[in-house]
Design a protein around this nucleic acid. Structure first.
Lengths: 193, 193
DNA sequence: CTCGTAGTAGACAGAGTGGTCTACAATGAT
DNA sequence: ATCATTGTAGACCACTCTGTCTACTACGAG
């Protein structure tokens, strides 16, 4: 494998498990078996390696979610499937996403709180991408404009909330609770499309 | 002021702004003007100082929220007031909570991901305390048992979700969006109590 | 008076930090 | 055959990290 790619993958794994500031570049190098000179040949600083790790996770997470939602009909089934997918993630049943340790983007934003920071911005962009995906499926429900926004907000809030509950409180069933809520709200609001 | 108390307050402020691993004890000492020996007289390690900072924030945050919810009638008004309070917090209009930089407990859990860790556990306990407060107000609505749990879950998920959106995405109006959702769901579910 | 507690200044230790540097090996194009 | 390019190993640099230590002052309770 490309050394650069290996560096990014190794860095991501360690950052996700232990946190970013807690992991030094020396550990990333020892774990990947790559020379320090090579790291600084590909990246000007640790900061840039972190950003690459964030973008790597963005791609793999987004791709995983798309594949899950594409496996069911668009619209309501996909919106409910979102929470099945989250449920599998929380229970660490998705090898591609590594053992669940919260949302990497929320975690990284916690360590780089300044919204002007490039790493924080990359996290915000990831969340925007996932929200767009959700919005796409809400559009399939063919509702009036105001309701579309409200349902999108609801799904996004339920998703983010369940991630927080799963990680901080250790409530690994949070996605199922969120799904139950979404189901009953949708039942009140829309005809079974 | 008590030196121990001053250490904890100073540590909290710095941890909240910059993250925990990013702040060394030397900075806390310089900022507070306290000798290193005094820190290690009161706390056996930085770890214990962190835990004290978490518990300090737990007390002040909980007290603030209780005072906000007690200012309106119990039940539905209090549940809606929760989101007004969050809205003020997100917009940094609550001096007691310092300039908004996400939820300190979510941030700390991101840096100490292991659920066996004492710091992570203290964060989980804080969240449980806030959930209990919410549950208390949902009980006031006098609904059937199943619905009580679902509404409590909804409020908690909306709260956590809006914190995440406000911090990571910089959507400072997330609490108002959550409030709008809660209002319309409650309208469908319950008679105006 | 005595003893325990709180507190100070700051040197120091040992490990670890991000990042640079020298010296060298393998490769492929001309 | 020669030479530029790419990458490697790891010593090294200046600095920071948590935590310890000596030597000392101040104060209140019994």
């Amino acid at each position: 494998m490309d050394k650069k790619e290996l560096l990014v993958r190794t860095a991501f794994k360690l950052f996700y498990i232990h946190g970013i500031h807690a992991v030094g570049v020396n550990l990333v190098l020892a774990e990947s078996g790559i020379a320090k000179r090579t790291l600084y040949h590909h990246f000007p600083s640790k900061e840039h390696l972190i950003e690459a790790a964030v973008r790597h996770r963005d791609r793999s997470y987004h791709a995983w979610l798309v594949s899950r939602l594409d496996a069911v009909p668009a619209g309501k089934p996909a919106l409910l499937e979102l929470f099945n997918a989250l449920n599998d993630w929380f229970h660490s049943r998705v090898p591609d996403l590594d053992h669940f340790n919260g949302c990497f983007f929320i975690n990284a934003s916690a360590e780089f709180g300044d919204r002007d920071n490039a790493i924080h911005q990359a996290c915000a962009e990831h969340k925007a991408g996932i929200s767009a995906l959700i919005r796409k499926h809400v559009d399939e429900l063919s509702l009036s404009d105001g309701i579309i926004v409200e349902i999108t907000n609801l799904v996004v809030l339920l998703k983010e909330g369940s991630i927080s509950l799963a990680h901080v409180q250790g409530n690994l069933d949070a996605a199922l609770e969120a799904k139950a809520i979404l189901e009953s709200v949708l039942q009140d609001r829309i005809a079974d499309k």
